[in-house]
Design a protein around this nucleic acid. Structure first.
Length: 288
DNA sequence: AAGCCGATCAACCGCAATGTT
DNA sequence: CAACATTGCGGTTGATCGGCT
C-alpha cells in the first residue's frame, strides 16, 4: 500500500527544539492531552511534524521522565533485560520507570555495550568473547611475572576463567604452563565439584562466573589432562567469523529465543555480588 | 589558539504494527 | 476486507562538546 509522508515537508521545521517550541507543546498537551499528533502541531502553533512533536514529548518533555546518570541498579537491569529481550528497547524501558527507550538505547550503545566488549563479554549473546583477546600474549605476560601466583590470583578476579583456560591452550609449546594444581592446591580442597568442561563460543549461555570473584577460581586452571583433550579449534569459531570487527561493535538482529530461562538467571548473576549503593556502573567499570 | 577527534545524545528516518473507515 | 491513517519502534545521523595535540 502506498504511504503518505508523515507530514508535509514544506514549511516544517527540523532540528533541535527551542525553549519556545517546547513551551508551546507543553502548554497544548497540558490542555488537550497527547492525542492526534498529526493535527497537534497545527493547533499548537508549531511548525513541526506531528511525529517530531510526539518524539519530543515522549523522549524529553514528559513530566515523568527521570534524567541524569543511570544508577548501577538501572544498568544491571538493562543488562539483564537485554540478555533476554535483545534490542527491545521499548520493552526494556517499560521495566525502568522514568527512562525512555531512546535514552536506554543511547546509553546501551555508548556505554554499556562498549564496556561489555572491553571486558570480554559479547553484548549480543552476553557470553564471554574468547576471540577478543590476544590470549597467548596475555598469558605469556602473566607467566613472565616473577611472582606468577600473585599475579594470577589478581588476574583471576578480573578475567573470564574461560579466557585464562583457553589462553593455556594457546600457549606456545616452549612456554610450559606451571602446574595449576600446585598453584591452587589450597583451593582445591574447597572446590570438589566438577569443573567446567565446555567453553564453546557457540554456547549462548552466559558464563556467570566471568566477573564474579567469589566463584570457582580453581576452574581457571582445571586439570591439565582435561585441557589436553581439546584444541583451540574446538573452542573457537573460525577466525573469519570470530574476528569480524563489525560483528563485535554492532548489535545485529537478535532473537530472544536464542536464550533460555537459564540464560536469564545466569545473566543476572553476571554482576551478582555485593555493591555499594553510592558507586555507579561507570565507577565500577572504571576500576577494571 | 586552532584544529582534530572521539564521545554523547537529541532528533530524524523508514518500516512495521495497529487502528479506523 | 481493503485502503488508509496513526502510532510505535529500532537503527542511524549529525550537532555539540570536551579533551588532546
Amino acid at each position: 500500500m502506498g504511504r503518505l509522508p508523515c507530514c508535509d515537508k514544506n514549511g516544517v521545521k527540523k532540528g533541535p527544539w527551542t525553549p519556545e517550541e517546547d513551551q508551546k507543546l507543553i502548554d497544548y498537551i497540558r490542555v488537550h492531552g497527547p492525542s492526534n499528533w498529526r493535527i497537534l502541531p497545527k493547533n499548537a502553533g508549531l511548525q513541526r511534524c506531528g511525529k517530531s512533536c510526539r518524539l519530543r514529548w515522549t523522549n524529553y518533555l514528559r513530566p515523568d521522565i527521570k534524567r541524569g546518570r543511570f544508577s548501577f541498579e538501572e544498568e544491571e537491569t538493562i543488562i539483564q533485560l537485554h540478555s533476554v529481550m535483545g534490542n527491545k528497547w521499548s520493552a526494556i524501558a517499560a521495566r525502568l520507570p522514568g527512562r525512555t527507550d531512546n535514552e536506554i538505547k543511547n546509553h546501551w550503545n555508548t556505554h554499556i555495550r562498549k564496556r561489555l566488549v572491553r571486558s570480554g563479554i559479547d553484548p549480543v549473546t552476553h557470553s564471554p568473547r574468547l576471540d577478543l583477546l590476544d590470549l597467548s600474549s596475555l598469558l605469556a605476560a602473566i607467566l613472565n611475572q616473577p611472582n606468577f601466583s600473585s599475579v594470577a590470583t589478581h588476574a583471576s578476579s578480573l578475567l573470564n576463567p574461560d579466557v585464562l583456560r583457553l589462553a593455556s591452550l594457546l600457549l606456545p609449546p616452549q612456554q610450559p604452563l606451571p602446574n595449576p594444581n600446585t598453584l591452587y592446591a589450597s583451593n582445591l580442597d574447597q572446590n570438589l565439584q566438577t569443573p567446567n568442561t565446555s567453553v564453546s563460543s557457540q554456547d549462548t549461555q552466559p558464563q556467570a562466573e566471568c566477573t564474579t570473584p567469589t566463584t570457582d577460581e580453581t576452574s581457571y586452571f582445571e586439570p591439565v589432562n582435561a585441557r589436553l583433550e581439546v584444541g583451540p579449534s574446538d573452542v573457537l569459531p573460525p577466525l573469519s567469523e570470530s574476528l569480524d570487527l563489525d560483528s563485535l561493535m554492532s548489535t545485529p538482529n537478535y532473537s530472544p529465543q536464542q536464550n533460555n530461562i537459564e540464560a536469564e538467571a545466569n545473566s543476572s548473576s553476571l554482576f551478582d555480588f555485593g555493591f555499594p549503593d553510592n558507586i555507579t556502573f561507570d565507577d565500577f567499570m572504571g576500576l577494571l
